[in-house]
Amino acid sequence: MTSQTSPSPLPNPEISDAARERIFSPLHFRGGRKAQNRLWLAPLTNQSSHEDGSLSDDELAFLEARAAGGFSVIESCATHVSRDGQGWPGEFGIFDDRLVDDWRRVADAVHAHDALLIPQIFHAGERANTEVSGQQAWSASAHEERDVRAATEADIARVIDDFARATRRAYEAGADGVELHGAHGYLLCQFLSHTRNQRTDRWGGSLQGRSRLIREVMKACRAEVPDDFIIGVRLSPEDFGATIGIDIDESIQTATWLVEDGAQFIHISLWDVFQPSKKYPDTHPLTLFREALPADIPLITAGHIWSLNDALVTLEHGADAVALGRSAIANPDWPRQARQPGFEPRRPPLSPEELRARALGPIFVDYMRNWKGFVS
């Protein structure tokens, strides 16, 4: 993760009784489905599955343990819709019909604990791991520094179809929805970027052109499944790390268009929920999105949420649900424990043995060493 200079945190709002009640109340989606509470497992890279994209027992055990721990929505790691869209080794895929049975295993395990399964589907674009895919990476525009070629019309048509077919596979496997990964500098985000996307055709230029790919993907996915199948989108509101060329006003407009196209939730990726907007330092990003979106469209977010108080503050800023990442790794039963008076989550560092006891396989434990101070 790239080091960034952050603006000063905004003052925390006073936590209302309504927020305390709401966090454990059901969350409803357009189309009729509902989650049992407002606590989600965030999509987490773990590199734990097999080279051919198939599911490992370790990855399944990790996801099931969080469903058993009371998270009402289980998001998978980012799972690639195309062979050339794979971002890292050991990535659980959704690019082939042979993987439907694997996803059915996950859906059955998650549903056994009354939770929803929402795979996060993506294409890495210029961030694809070419050593794994064996193919040249491509994106909105060519980038010589990374040997990235510009997408052709055929590439774009194919990837739209790949997202739609992946959505159909998730539906056939019994998942409850999918999340389009339009954040973190991956393909859909690369097209949205006003710096990475230098195209002069209908897929570039103004925001209307740069947002065309993610909107066409949404429409194609929506057409593949019934209305009650949840489709949402994760967006980076502003630049951070690998996310480059993203403006918050454009992100809000994109989110608004995507809701018109069929999105049933918007997931805003905040690396730190306690920081204000970079562009509007007196305002929280969630407040801006919440004011712009229809009231019945859930707004989800993640970023440095550890304690129950952290989660409640995030709801007060405008979120309808929170997605926990590192805190869910350290506390697989966070939602159940948070109902107890005096709950204090386990925080890093954790030993490899402690992480194994929390259903992390050995590869995932090694991967967590990339986060300074997480593994003792």
Rank of each mutant, 00 (worst) to 15 (best):
T2K: 15
T5C: 07
T5Y: 13
S6Y: 15
S8T: 15
S8K: 15
P9Y: 12
I15N: 04
A18N: 13
R20C: 13
H28D: 04
H28F: 11
R30Y: 04
G31L: 10
G32V: 12
Q36W: 07
L39R: 00
L41M: 14
A42P: 02
A42Y: 01
P43C: 06
N46W: 00
Q47A: 11
Q47F: 13
Q47K: 08
S48G: 12
S48L: 01
H50A: 10
D52A: 11
D52F: 14
G53I: 11
S54R: 12
D57M: 03
E59Q: 09
A61P: 00
F62A: 09
A65L: 05
R66C: 06
A68I: 03
G69H: 00
F71M: 13
S72G: 13
V73K: 00
S76I: 05
C77K: 05
V81G: 02
R83T: 10
G87K: 02
P89L: 12
G90T: 05
F92C: 05
G93H: 03
I94D: 01
D96L: 00
L99S: 03
L99C: 07
V100P: 04
W103I: 00
V106M: 13
A112P: 07
I118E: 04
I118H: 03
G125L: 08
R127I: 05
T130K: 06
G134S: 09
E153H: 12
A154W: 07
A154I: 12
V159K: 02
I160R: 05
D161A: 15
F163E: 06
A166N: 10
A170D: 01
A170F: 08
Y171P: 03
A175H: 08
D176V: 08
G177D: 08
G182Y: 06
L188W: 09
C189A: 15
Q190G: 05
Q190N: 10
F191M: 06
L192C: 08
T195D: 14
N197I: 04
T200Q: 13
R202F: 12
W203H: 04
G205S: 10
L207Y: 12
S211F: 06
L213R: 01
I214W: 02
R215L: 13
M218I: 10
R222E: 08
A223W: 08
F229T: 07
F229E: 05
G232L: 03
V233R: 07
S236A: 14
P237Q: 09
P237E: 09
T243K: 01
G245N: 11
G245W: 12
G245K: 11
I246W: 09
D247A: 05
I252E: 03
A255M: 05
L258R: 07
V259H: 04
D261C: 14
G262L: 02
Q264L: 01
S269N: 09
L270Y: 02
L270N: 01
W271Q: 10
F274P: 00
Q275W: 11
P276K: 07
K279T: 14
T287H: 12
L288T: 03
F289Y: 14
F289R: 09
A292V: 08
A295T: 14
A295P: 00
L299F: 02
I300A: 00
I305M: 07
D310H: 14
L312D: 02
A319Q: 01
V322M: 02
S327V: 10
A328G: 04
I329H: 02
P332K: 11
P332Q: 06
P335C: 02
G342Q: 10
R347M: 10
A359V: 02
P362F: 08
V365H: 00
V365R: 01
D366S: 11
S376T: 15
